[in-house]
């Protein structure tokens, strides 16, 4: 009786099997890589805004404190986008004819808020409180990066749960005195950990509670 399968059948069988399993593994790996890539986390991608606001100019060159505009950050869950009134505190006098700022003037005249597009949006099941972090001595730069060097705003870190946990498991080396929270270039010569531990006592940060699920999820 003639052979039912050609000599190469075994080889093809193995190749197909290999491709099937290899392909599945590759697909899984691709999903994992994609999920962690900046394509998915939006890290480093600028977002189109109605006005191309430059943090580099305002916070960097003019050295305006973050809290001039984000005035809720110490007391509220959200840092707060400033009302148009705040922009116009200066721009009623400066760049009054600039095309770029037309939406700002229009917003004030019509009482319609500017519709900024979110750069960082945490999932709704995460309850992040800006005030708590700022008052515990977490610098803006820890999560937002060097905002004073960003001509257009982008997400500086992936801000995934593992990033939150890194700090919640060991906050000490990432804390700074409250006075330095908005300082983008704050440096400390001494032992950051020792300072952080002292600050934790001072600001009543209890390390044990920080990794409980209900600290962030409710």
């Amino acid at each position: 009786m003639a052979q039912l399968f050609p000599r190469s059948a075994d080889m093809w069988f193995r190749v197909v099997l290999f491709l099937l399993f290899g392909g599945l593994i590759a697909l899984f790996a691709a999903c994992v890589v994609l999920q962690r890539s900046d394509y998915r986390t939006d890290e480093g991608w600028t977002v189109d805004q109605p006005v191309p606001f430059s943090h580099e100019h305002h916070a960097g060159v003019l050295r305006i404190d973050c809290r001039y505009c984000h005035d809720n950050v110490e007391t509220s869950a959200v840092a707060g986008l400033p009302p148009t009134h705040t922009c116009m505190s200066c721009h009623s006098q400066l760049w009054t004819g600039a095309e770029m700022l037309a939406p700002v003037r229009q917003s004030l005249a019509q009482g319609e808020p500017l519709r900024w597009n979110r750069v960082i949006e945490l999932p709704d099941y995460v309850f992040f409180h800006h005030g708590v972090h700022v008052n515990a001595g977490v610098g803006c730069v820890e999560c937002h990066g060097q905002v004073d060097r960003m001509p257009l705003m982008y997400k500086a870190k992936p801000l995934t749960m593992s990033g939150c946990l890194d700090c919640h498991q060991d906050p000490a080396p990432r804390l700074r005195p409250r006075e330095a929270v908005t300082d983008m270039n704050w440096q400390y010569e001494g032992d950051r950990r020792a300072l952080g531990e002292a600050l934790m006592r001072k600001y009543h940060v209890r390390a044990g509670n920080l990794t409980h699920c209900y600290t962030c999820h409710r």
């Binding site: 060159v61 003019l62 050295r63 305006i64 404190d65 809290r67 001039y68 200066c90 006098q93 400066l94």
Partner: peptide, 21 residues
């Protein structure tokens, strides 16, 4: 936070925003 951009650190009215016009 609120006054330095115009009034300056020393209160002399020479803040960074004043230097820009």
């Amino acid at each position: 936070i609120n006054c330095v951009p115009c009034h300056g650190l020393a209160g002399d009215g020479l803040g960074t925003v004043v230097q820009r016009g």
